[in-house]
Nucleic acid binder design. Structure first.
Length: 389
RNA sequence: GGGUAGAUUCCGGAGCGGUCAAACGGGGCAGACUGUAAAUCUGCUGGCUAUGCCUUCGAAGGUUCGAAUCCUUCUCUGCCCA
């Protein structure tokens, strides 16, 4: 029984320190306190976060207690992990605002009843300076400088600010405060999480088990998924977007997405396009529902299979008056339908390059005027099409 | 505290008085190709009421017919020494 649980929990992890310790803790029979710290630097959760949240959910399903730490205090410092430059600080208001939607979305995956949500500002904002100094005395400069991120920056003559060095210490102290048994994080969190072990030992506690999970690559297949790089799939993306974004990943990336997003193995025999469509559909089904997944798939197929545009479910836009200037109309559609600001120069470029198409015909004259009829389909760029009403 | 180097468009990084909206690379966007993609190739990549005009080269002043380029002060950063 414990063996099964152990195997399950260790599945799809990158690094565990250590499996034996985890086994011992599991054998104790009490619900373990499993920590995940998140800094809500952006308001939305994406599939990269989901990898970790799904692991937490496994713990919950086995009866354990999740402690979700909202780093409202640490977010203002910014985690230097993987950063080649100091993060721009966020205001506390921004962080709290983000935290609201962030936790809401986290419960799309987590079981709310088995989750304790705490804010680390609760203890850090009240910590007297004396205590800060004491805390700093518990670690050495050399320990902190072991970190590759800092090393690299020092070697390449970039600045490292002292507050950034506080970050791992604070994250470690979180573990002491909430008395965590296990801490989960991405591979880039290994250092920070290990600091937690040290600090817990220093306080005479049984140190937490460290469990790191693979970082999901973003849509570009290169860098880790993150909002700021724009290579993410949001948990709350509408089905069509979610599907479309997943279809844009490379074939090489697919098995990894199957494992980390769905927790299953890809059928290597399947035609890659079909495999990708199933990956996309299953993901949509997971965060929306089966009907939405089916609809998104049909839509995608219609949009991209030539001649089936009439079938596709596209955003509708009212016909402009006859003889409307093309540029002005396109600009307005970007703004109103897709909430994107595009300069006229930008749109002119799209036209000249043949991106703007009416019923499949390229409109390449930037000075053209248009007379549109209901039912016409206008393509703006790869991802955006509209239907006239 | 002393010395020294530097701050350029999304990023890296040229430019060192006019030919600079600013080389080149990356990224991004578009087209072709394809199995949606990826890869590859090609084009574009400050704004505008557009063969011209406007705003940009850390900030503010100044010199000059003319400044990203020269001068002054300021702000910030790296490196070396203490």
């Amino acid at each position: 029984m414990t063996e099964d649980a152990l195997t399950l929990l260790c599945q799809d992890t990158e690094h565990i320190h250590s499996r034996e310790e985890l086994a011992t803790k599991l054998k104790s029979g009490r619900p373990l306190r499993v920590k995940l710290g998140v800094d809500p630097t952006a308001p939305d959760i994406h599939l990269g976060h989901a990898v970790q949240l799904r692991k937490l959910r496994q713990f919950q399903d086995l009866g354990h207690q999740v402690v979700l730490i909202i780093g409202d205090f640490t977010a203002m410092i910014g985690d230097p992990s993987g950063r080649s430059a100091t993060r721009p600080p966020l205001t506390h208001e921004e962080v709290l605002e983000n935290a609201k939607t962030f936790t809401e979305q986290a419960f799309l995956i987590l079981d709310k009843d088995k989750t304790e949500t705490v804010y680390n500002g609760d203890w850090f904002s009240k910590m007297p300076f004396q205590e800060v100094i004491k805390l700093n005395a518990k670690v050495t400069m050399q320990q902190m400088l072991q970190r590759e991120d800092f090393r690299k920056r020092i070697d390449s003559h970039q600045e490292v600010r002292l507050h950034e060095i506080q970050y791992p210490i604070m994250q470690g102290w979180d573990s002491v405060v909430i008395r965590s048994d296990v801490e989960i994080g991405g591979t880039d969190q290994l250092f920070n999480v290990l600091v937690g072990r040290d600090l817990q030992k220093g306080e005479g506690m049984d140190p937490q088990v460290v469990m790191t999970l693979p970082l999901l690559e973003g849509l570009d297949g290169n860098k880790k998924m993150s909002k700021s790089l724009g290579n993410y799939v949001g948990l709350t993306d509408v089905p069509d977007d979610m599907f479309g974004k997943l279809m844009s990943i490379s074939d090489e990336l697919m098995p990894r997405y199957y494992r980390l997003v769905l927790g299953e193995d890809m059928d290597a025999e399947m035609h890659p396009m079909e495999a990708k469509k199933q990956l996309a559909a299953k993901t949509v089904a997971l965060y929306h529902n089966n009907d939405a997944a089916q609809a998104a798939r049909t839509n995608f197929e219609n949009k991209f299979a030539k001649g089936s545009l009439e079938e596709a479910d596209l955003p509708e836009v009212d016909c402009p008056p006859a003889e409307s200037p093309l540029i002005a109309f396109v600009s307005q559609v970007y703004q109103q339908t897709f909430d994107q600001k595009r300069s006229n120069g930008d749109i002119r470029r799209l036209i000249q390059q043949g991106s703007i198409q009416l019923n499949g015909e390229k409109l390449s004259d930037p000075k053209a005027t248009l007379t549109l009829r209901a039912g016409d389909v206008l393509k703006l760029d790869k991802k955006r099409l509209i239907r006239l009403r």
